[in-house]
Amino acid sequence: MKVQVNRDMCEGHGKCQSAAPEIFELRDDEISYVLVDEVPAESVARVEAAIRLCPRQAISWVKEK
């Protein structure tokens, strides 16, 4: 599964990085970047938590075609 951050919505609150540091990184532009192409199985729950916690609702799974 792939995860994405909507740059128009993200405001750098960093909740995603605290929830799943191996997946999200807050960079200098105060926007969160996704570090991996595929989210490994052991990180899925943490990504789910990030999706739930993001105050701006900026994170979502990429829908598979």
């Binding site: 128009d8 405001e11 750098g12 609150h13 105060e30």
Partner: peptide, 15 residues
């Protein structure tokens, strides 16, 4: 809404 918010939100980021 998003467009308007983006005019000012850099003034409110953690930095």
């Amino acid at each position: 809404h998003v467009m308007l918010r983006r005019l000012v939100n850099k003034g409110f980021t953690p930095r």
